[in-house]
Amino acid sequence: QVASGNGDRDPLPPGWEIKIDPQTGWPFFVDHNSRTTTWNDPRVPSEGP
């Protein structure tokens, strides 16, 4: 069983990049398509309500 969020081996969607926040050391994700950033890994399906 693979733990949720453990998709580091999967490629990011086109136009996405991983960067590290220098203050926290946490990775965040840059979507160059929409010029936005998020803490949520785009490779992990979001949980519904």
Rank of each mutant, 00 (worst) to 15 (best):
G48E: 11
E17P: 01
L12K: 13
F29V: 01
P11N: 10
L12Y: 05
T37N: 05
D41P: 01
W26L: 07
G7L: 13
D8M: 06
V44C: 11
P11T: 14
V44S: 10
V2Y: 13
Q23L: 11
D8C: 11
L12N: 02
V44P: 01
F29S: 02
R43F: 00
P27E: 15
G5S: 15
V30P: 00
P11C: 14
W39F: 08
P14N: 12
Q23T: 04
Q23R: 12
P45T: 06
G5R: 15
D10M: 14
F29C: 03
E17S: 04
P22F: 05
R43G: 08
S4E: 13
D31M: 00
G48Q: 15
A3F: 11
R9D: 05
P14E: 04
V30C: 08
P27Y: 14
R43N: 08
P49Q: 15
D41H: 08
N33S: 11
G48T: 00
R9W: 07
V2G: 06
R35C: 09
D31R: 04
R9V: 09
P49A: 09
W39T: 06
T24L: 04
P42V: 09
S4F: 05
D8F: 07
F28M: 13
G48H: 08
D21M: 09
D31I: 03
T24Y: 07
G5F: 15
T24Q: 10
E47Q: 05
L12F: 10
D21H: 13
P11Q: 13
N40E: 12
D10Q: 01
S34Q: 06
E17Y: 01
N6Y: 12
T37Q: 01
P22S: 10
T36E: 05
I20Y: 08
D41S: 07
W26T: 15
N33Q: 06
P13R: 08
W26R: 14
N33K: 03
W39D: 04
G5E: 15
A3L: 12
Q1F: 03
P11Y: 09
E47I: 04
G25Q: 14
R35N: 14
D8Q: 11
P45V: 10
G15R: 06
W16S: 07
